[in-house]
């Protein structure tokens, strides 16, 4: 069965916080269906009892000592801020949320 990505595009685009115009959505649906068709071939392999690989390194994690290091000067912290107010990063309202288009 072919994967029809069309139904998923809006949902996934919302999860990923990506505004896509209509054309992009159409193209995305078509391309992603094809790509996922290929990717889905991994399902043909029997992986019963196989541990997943998240890291190719099998060493345990290193721990650093609890020592403080100098932080960045404030002007460096804020130098790339697209919108700032005083010494803060400023963002638009976090509650006035429009309904996601379905």
């Amino acid at each position: 069965m072919a994967i029809d990505f069309a139904e998923e595009v809006d949902h996934v685009a919302h999860l990923a916080r990506l505004t896509l115009d209509w054309e992009e959505k159409v193209r995305m649906a078509e391309q992603l269906s094809k790509i996922l068709e290929t990717a889905r071939r991994v399902q043909e392999l029997d992986t019963t009892g196989i541990e997943p690989t998240a890291h190719v390194i099998t060493l345990p994690a290193v721990l650093r000592e609890d020592l403080t290091r100098p932080s960045l000067p404030l002007n460096r912290v804020l130098q790339n801020a697209p919108t700032r107010q005083k010494d803060f990063f400023r963002v638009p309202s976090i509650t006035a949320v429009k309904q996601v288009e379905e």
Binding site: F88, R90, V91, P92, I94, T95
Partner: peptide
């Protein structure tokens, strides 16, 4: 939180 027009982040 319910009626703010913008927020500041620290």
């Amino acid at each position: 939180i319910f009626d703010s027009s913008y927020s500041l982040v620290d």
